[in-house]
Design a protein around this nucleic acid. Sequence first.
DNA 1: CGTATTGTTGACTACCGTCAAGCCCAGTGG
DNA 2: CCACTGGGCTTGACGGTAGTCAACAATACG
Lengths: 246, 246
Amino acid sequence: MVTSITSDAVRERCAHCPGRSHSICNVIDDDELPILVAESARVQVAKGRAFIEEGTPAHEFYVLTEGRVKLFNLLPDGRRQIAGFAECGDFLGLAAVDSYAFSAEAICDVTLCRFSHSGIDRLTQRFPHLEHRLRDEASRELTIMQRRLVLLGRKTARERLATFLIEQSLPPCCAAPDLLEKEEKPIKIKLLMSRTDIADYLGMTIETVSRTLGVFKKEKLITVQGVTAVTLLAPHRLRAIAEGNG
Amino acid sequence: MVTSITSDAVRERCAHCPGRSHSICNVIDDDELPILVAESARVQVAKGRAFIEEGTPAHEFYVLTEGRVKLFNLLPDGRRQIAGFAECGDFLGLAAVDSYAFSAEAICDVTLCRFSHSGIDRLTQRFPHLEHRLRDEASRELTIMQRRLVLLGRKTARERLATFLIEQSLPPCCAAPDLLEKEEKPIKIKLLMSRTDIADYLGMTIETVSRTLGVFKKEKLITVQGVTAVTLLAPHRLRAIAEGNG
DNA sequence: CGTATTGTTGACTACCGTCAAGCCCAGTGG
DNA sequence: CCACTGGGCTTGACGGTAGTCAACAATACG
């Protein structure tokens, strides 16, 4: 399950954001990659397996190099809140001081790059830029969280789902949801998750998710192809709904 | 309004957490404090004034040295979600990449220590520890955010308010709400905010806050002295409710 | 002491959650 | 090839939680 990582595996870059990489390696020169490689291990996790459990002591830190992961918290009676989905290049374990603040589960087969905290410390000493990089990443996470608080605390089901659809239509690394503002052609998106996951992400029930999609369909805001494909017919209207003017 | 900061002003420490300081200065030796002072400015903000506005370009960074601040987001129609309250020693501006992700308003008269981003960069170059400190702070923020997502996404009004009361009964810097677990004497707390703020913090309405407090009173879980003082009669039961077993 | 603001309480309503039945589709085996 | 099965999704009926609107009480403030 754990083998030495190849240089390539830590050099993932985000195709959607030219010039910007989410991986840890963009602060490390190519000829120093072996140092990075020496501090990390490659980990593979099978679809559906949880590999981080909320509350357990946090000694490690991950970079996702392949696949998708969901991060969530549970209440004792099973209620679940999904905090977010991690993609290729994302960091896992920033929200951990002594113990992990979340659980993580592989949505599909997943490859990770694992670093011990002490390994990260050695790397940050060697590459001071890395520390800045990690703070930067944490800041970006925090801004995303802020918007999620508004969504969960103050938006209606309709607004939540509209927000979700718009969010899904943007490239994964665009924190600001107003990039494609003027783009008004229909946008086809793939929902990479089940209704249950959508519901737990938006703080709703699967029934309400389903019903609200139904309403959007009736209002000709979207069309649905099968279960996972959705076309946004009127992105501008959805965006308005998402922001509370619906 | 802006004067040069005194050394004392940046040396706030958290009385509740011996050995731990939330201020920026605990990574800087006393004899190097002048360097810190040179990079910062003292700012005073009057009660009720907003001094950071969501979406404006973020060029600065603050440490709160006196008073209390609320951080929030607004929807266009006025719905408000309070993300949190900052206390003495807290950092403001971590959740900002290019522009601020939140607005900030002084709850009472407030004193801040202001750093330009470029000033912070100079400081982090001089004191590499500071960068780690900032990341650490961002991580702590993130873990707090995780719990807030569960609260807003999955908890009932009753559970939210119980969580809030327990939270208020803990020293401000205790991220883990299970420290005083065994402490079962009544706990007297001061609510340092209006019902409106509580409601906007918990994603509810003031009426529901008021009613739910009424229910807690009837169930002899709390007593209320005036409007701002509450005594938790059965902290363990409240804690159970807060976690979803109530 | 009167006015304004903030908090409480009540009646009503609506949104969304719960429960239950039925549908769709993929995978399996006859 | 088709029936069968099971899981995920949709739809409907119903009810409860919490929001809205409004009146009143309490507290703060000049």
